[in-house]
């Protein structure tokens, strides 16, 4: 029998990669915003699966918890609140600037891809995350947490400030005029 530990990662990756590509196209191409939002949830879910296959369980869980559980719900709420209807995709004209931006990014990516791919592919196994060492230090979550609260303590605190500011900003921007609705 073949060694499963060698084949399984490839099967997982290629399945997920294919699904992610298809679902991403669906997100962008779906005519109704609610459909897009639902496809986005599926996409985030698949990405979380990919993270989990990269031994990043904590990030995978946070991805679903924050992205799928909170951010996309926010999108869904706003779509329902505004009662957006299907969008007419026909008759959309591409401007030169937009097409140019897309083209330049595409070319840039192709250049980067060819330069990196021309060398020998770096296996994730070689010189990669030392799973044994991380297990000894108390598992992936503990290592991430340790680093987050020591080396990255300032960005961490700043991120909390950013969230606070965003919260205040969102409330101020979205608030209705006081004349229309008395303060609840």
């Amino acid at each position: 029998m073949p060694d499963f530990s060698l084949i399984l990662p490839h099967v997982v990756f290629h399945t997920f990669a294919l699904l992610i590509t298809i679902v991403s196209i669906c997100v962008v191409a779906a005519r109704h915003p609610v459909k897009s939002a639902v496809f986005l949830v599926v996409d985030l879910f698949l990405l979380a699966g990919l993270y989990a296959s990269l031994d990043s369980h904590f990030v995978a869980a946070i991805q679903i918890l924050v992205y799928a559980g909170a951010i996309v719900v926010l999108f869904l709420f706003v779509i329902m609140l505004l009662n957006l209807q299907q969008e007419q995709l026909k008759g959309v004209k591409f401007t030169v600037v937009e097409a140019g931006a897309l083209l330049i990014t595409l070319i840039g990516f192709l250049v980067v891809m060819f330069t990196t791919m021309s060398g020998k592919p770096t296996g994730l196994g070689e010189g990669s995350l030392d799973v044994a060492a991380i297990e000894a230090a108390g598992g992936n979550t503990q290592v991430v947490a340790m680093k987050l609260l020591t080396n990255f303590i300032w960005p961490f605190e700043l991120a909390s400030m950013l969230i606070l500011m965003a919260m205040v900003a969102a409330i101020v921007i979205a608030k209705k005029d006081k004349k229309v609705v008395p303060a609840a």
Partner: peptide
């Protein structure tokens, strides 16, 4: 799951979609 707690929270936060989409 070695992050069992987070997994459970993450997935239970998806339960909102069923309700929201059903109503809409």
């Amino acid at each position: 799951v070695d992050v069992g707690f987070l997994f459970i929270f993450a997935v239970s936060s998806l339960a909102v979609y069923g309700v929201t989409i059903a109503g809409w």
